[in-house]
């Protein structure tokens, strides 16, 4: 008999690993599986893990989150690789509904984008409204005194940024050619790190900003906050089982119902509030139903309603109890 060679040893090791893994897989056979494609700004705050924990205690369904940008989340849903999407880009959502892929949209949370920049504020935007602030940044940028970092990744935040530039009278596509205008092409966290390194301004969701700021990773300051143009609305949309076959529609609706339930809405309100001294996300259901904060409710309706409703009747499928205006 020949001596054992490294290859023999390896085969033994790999076989053992394989067996252990297969056994592990069998022991952890998933329950029902709901695949949710979600925007990164929601996932990276960790709130979805809280929601997952609370949901899985109550239902025999495993939530599997795939964290991607809004653009890719919608692609996933169209291809049938996700049963539900959590997104924050009303224009893309409407297109998604119109093309027939999505049904039963529900708005479940909102917060505000913020314009952040170096504490020295070279373009002097603090206290300005959004349009003024952007104009000042362009002016200072062209004089080589300020920089802007754009996400440039087709995410919800990026779409918001483009619309803000348009509202301020600029064309994002033209701006990106200018030397002070940088494009990160990556997620929010890394974009903030780049803006911090290069002492630039950028648009951020409040959750990612607070997290990075409180951990001392960035020194950027919030310079423009809580304005109508900066509102950020999160909604859930189920994939239509009549258009995309084999999606888990029933469990998707169960999850949407949980998102808008009082338990989950409270969870959203309280998440990380004690750590940051302010909520990362505000619950939207009660606000829209009872008009508890008329100004914010008005802003959400202006920004994220289609034909005066969060989901026009032709884009609803079964489960009428999801909506009050039947």
């Amino acid at each position: 008999m020949q001596r054992p060679t490294p290859l023999h040893m390896l085969i033994v090791i790999l076989t053992v690993l394989l067996t252990v893994g297969v056994i592990h897989d069998f022991l952890s056979t998933p329950r029902r599986r709901l695949i949710i494609a979600t925007t990164t700004s929601l996932y990276d705050t960790g709130i979805l893990e809280e929601i997952k924990r609370a949901f899985e205690e109550r239902h025999p369904i495993d939530l599997h989150f795939i964290s991607v940008g809004t653009g890719l989340a919608i692609q996933h849903a169209k291809r049938g690789d996700a049963d539900l999407i959590l997104v924050h880009a009303p224009s893309m959502e409407l297109a998604f509904l119109r093309e027939g892929y999505g049904v039963n949209r529900k708005i479940f949370a909102y917060n505000f984008f913020v314009i952040v920049g170096p504490a020295e504020d070279p373009a002097d935007v603090e206290g300005s409204n959004v349009t003024e602030a952007l104009k000042k940044i362009v002016e200072a940028g062209r004089l080589n005194r300020a920089r802007w970092v754009s996400r440039g990744d087709n995410s919800g935040t990026h779409l918001k940024e483009i619309s803000l530039w348009t509202a301020a009278g600029f064309n994002w596509t033209a701006l990106r050619g200018e030397s002070w205008f940088m494009e990160s092409g990556t997620g929010m966290g890394r974009t903030l790190l780049i803006a911090n390194e290069r002492e630039a301004y950028t648009l951020s969701d409040i959750g990612t900003y607070l997290k990075y700021s409180s951990e001392g990773l960035i020194e950027l300051q919030v310079l423009v906050d809580e304005a109508e143009e900066l509102i950020n609305v999160y909604s859930a949309i189920a994939v239509d089982p009549r258009v995309v076959s084999n999606v888990n529609f029933e469990d998707a609706v169960t999850f949407i119902k949980f998102l808008i339930s009082e338990d989950c809405q409270n969870l959203i309100q309280e998440y990380m509030r004690d750590v940051y001294g302010r909520s990362l996300f505000y619950p939207a259901v009660k606000l829209l139903k009872e008009n508890t904060d008329p100004r914010a409710a008005e802003w959400i309706r202006n920004y994220a309603y289609f034909n005066g409703t969060e989901c026009p009747p032709q884009y609803r499928y079964n489960y009428p109890e999801l909506y009050d205006d039947r």
């Binding site: 990276d44 960790g46 599997h64 795939i66 964290s67 966290g189 990612t208 997290k211």
Partner: peptide, 24 residues
């Protein structure tokens, strides 16, 4: 894999995720 917690989350995908989350 999609970096699903408890199903397809491996070392490299965790590293990438925690880095974007700021947990350096």
């Amino acid at each position: 894999g999609g970096n699903i917690a408890g199903l397809t989350r491996v070392l490299t995908t965790t590293i990438a995720m925690e880095a974007t989350r700021g947990n350096i």
